[in-house]
Simulated assay, not measured.
Amino acid sequence: MALHRLGKDPESPNGGSPTVYLDTDSGHYLLQGWKVTDPDRLAQLDLPDHETVIEFPRRMVQFFPEVAGEA
C-alpha cells in the first residue's frame, strides 16, 4: 500500500491533523481527523462495530482531486 498525502489542514495548530491521504493501490481516501466521542452525536449514527467516525472540517474538501479539478 502506497499512501500519498494530499493535504493537511492549513488552519490546524502546529501542523497537525486533519489530513487527507490517497491509497494509490486501492484508489481509496484515508482521512485523519478528530475522534468523535460525544455520545449524543454517536447515537444519531448507524455505526457498525467495525467502523469509526472522525470529524473532518469542510475546508479540507479542497484537497480531494475531484474538487480541485484534477483527475
Rank of each mutant, 00 (worst) to 15 (best):
E66A: 11
I54F: 05
G16F: 15
F63T: 05
T37P: 01
D38K: 04
D40L: 01
P13Y: 04
P18M: 04
V20P: 03
T37A: 01
T37H: 00
P39A: 08
L22W: 07
P39M: 04
D25W: 12
G27N: 03
E66S: 09
F56K: 09
G7Y: 07
L6A: 13
R59E: 01
E70R: 12
E51M: 12
Q44C: 03
D49K: 15
G27P: 00
R58E: 08
L30C: 08
R41W: 11
G16S: 15
L31C: 13
R41P: 04
G7P: 06
R59N: 13
R59K: 13
G16R: 15
S17F: 14
E51C: 10
Q44V: 03
L30E: 05
K35D: 02
A68G: 00
Q32C: 01
Q44K: 14
H50V: 12
V20Q: 01
D38Y: 02
D40G: 01
H28F: 12
Q62Y: 14
D38A: 02
V61S: 15
D49S: 15
S12W: 05
A68Q: 09
R58D: 09
S12D: 06
A71N: 10
R41Y: 12
E51D: 11
Y29R: 02
P65R: 11
L6P: 15
V61F: 15
P10T: 05
Y29K: 01
P65D: 10
R41M: 09
S26R: 00
G15T: 07
F63N: 00
T24F: 03
A2I: 14
A43P: 11
R59Y: 08
T24R: 02
P57H: 08
G15H: 06
G69V: 01
E51P: 02
Y29G: 03
G69S: 01
